[in-house]
Amino acid sequence: MPFCAARCGYCDFNTYTPSELDGSGASPDGWLEALRRELALAARAVGPRAVDTVFVGGGTPSLLGAERLGRVLGTIRSEFGLADGAEVTTESNPESTSPEFFAGLAEAGFTRVSLGMQSAAPHVLRVLDRRHTPGRAVAAAREARAAGLEHVNLDLIYATPGETTDDLRSSLDAVLSAGVDHVSAYSLIVEDGTALARRVSRGELPAPDDDVAAERYELIDDVLGAAGFGWYEVSNWARSEAAACRHNLGYWLDGDWWGAGPGAHSHLDGVRWWNVKHPARYAALLGAGESPEGGREELTAEERATERVMLQLRLATGLPLALLDDAGREAASRASAEGLLDGAALTTGRAVLTRRGRLLADGVVQDLLTGLTGAPV
């Protein structure tokens, strides 16, 4: 869902504000009709196949309101059917939610909501160009739980310029007070082409510091761990196995998914494709009975093996050593000796990151893949 009321300074997603769409003819209702057409196309392409997870991401899906989001889910039900116990998630901005909104989601069949909190510190929210007030995310999480949504996630961003350790502690205290069962926490990345990147390049803000980010990650892990959350992916913690986001696990475990909407990416049987980005072009193609596909690639066996290493190593369940060749397994042994992989797990045939390994996960992956491919990655 590509629409936002305003653009956050750090965001490089395929999103559009009203001023950016002025005169293009793109609208939420036009998007909804085009999405209905793409879902019908998807059902014809994959055949009878019940949907196990749904994730409505953005953009700001909550701007649609519960009624429109319910229509999205209704179309999925009619075209595919939902598997028993399907997980159905929508992202939401705290400022565009209400008790009535969450009640509508629950009635429509949503089981999970992910709220963009980012921080409880007003000055950090200002740096990120976030519009919600510091307490609204916690209030929204409580409203979602009261409405009967089974799982509620709060997103945090840490290591923002100007954020202090006390700021992050306050944010974590707020998260825990909300009673959620899932937390995602991401180190701020300054993406090229964003307003934040321009501010950093002009010297208005310092670039995020890697050492500070590592310290903040350890603090997050300590506080959440003490509160009963366990990490199951490098940037994600859940109170229980049932609270883990099954949709995202599908990505990390090389599953199949159909990404519907402008700029959405899909993966099916080793083929990956992506839609055209602009919502007006997306709607026009589907309105003319054409596919909105903008490009595709067929992954080689080597590329799929590489991606499995990159993605599965991020999980607490780790990576089967059987996916590595002899050189890769030797690299895993070295990583274990350096305290980056869990030695006990290695003896059972799995490569599992230690906490220090999580901080250096990209380097560990590179070493394992150098062994796998025989060349630097």
Rank of each mutant, 00 (worst) to 15 (best):
E100D: 15
E150D: 13
D269E: 09
P48Q: 13
R49Y: 01
S291G: 02
L249Q: 06
R49G: 04
N275T: 10
E204R: 10
D192M: 12
L268K: 02
L286A: 13
V88K: 09
A141L: 11
A144N: 02
S98A: 04
A322F: 03
S27I: 05
I220H: 07
A284P: 03
A103D: 00
S187Y: 01
V46Y: 02
G230D: 15
A331I: 01
S171H: 03
D29C: 02
A288L: 12
W231P: 12
T300N: 05
A106N: 04
D221A: 15
V365M: 04
G339A: 07
A50K: 13
G203L: 14
P28D: 14
E67F: 09
R356V: 12
S119E: 13
R296Y: 10
D221P: 00
R281D: 13
A322E: 15
E67K: 14
L224V: 07
P279Y: 07
G374C: 11
G357R: 01
V54G: 07
V46G: 10
E107C: 10
L115C: 13
G109N: 06
L73S: 10
R314H: 08
E303Y: 02
L149A: 07
A43K: 07
V127L: 04
L69G: 08
A139L: 15
S119R: 05
V88R: 05
R314V: 10
S171A: 12
S177I: 02
G294S: 08
V124S: 01
E241F: 00
A337L: 14
R334K: 13
G30K: 07
R36K: 10
S171W: 08
S170F: 02
E302K: 03
Y232K: 03
T160M: 07
T347E: 14
L128C: 11
P292N: 10
G363Y: 06
G23S: 03
D342T: 05
A195D: 14
G287P: 07
A195H: 12
E38A: 13
D173A: 15
L368S: 04
A344H: 12
V124F: 14
P376L: 15
D342G: 02
L372F: 09
S336Y: 02
D209H: 09
V352K: 08
P48Y: 08
E163K: 10
A322Y: 00
V309K: 00
D29M: 11
L341Y: 08
G228H: 11
A316H: 13
P48H: 12
V72T: 14
P134K: 02
L156D: 08
L249D: 02
A141G: 09
A242F: 01
R68F: 08
P376S: 12
R131H: 10
E218N: 06
A345G: 13
W252L: 05
R304F: 00
G203R: 14
T370H: 14
V309N: 00
L321Q: 02
V46N: 01
L368A: 06
T160C: 13
T194F: 07
T133K: 10
A301Q: 11
H247S: 04
A50Q: 13
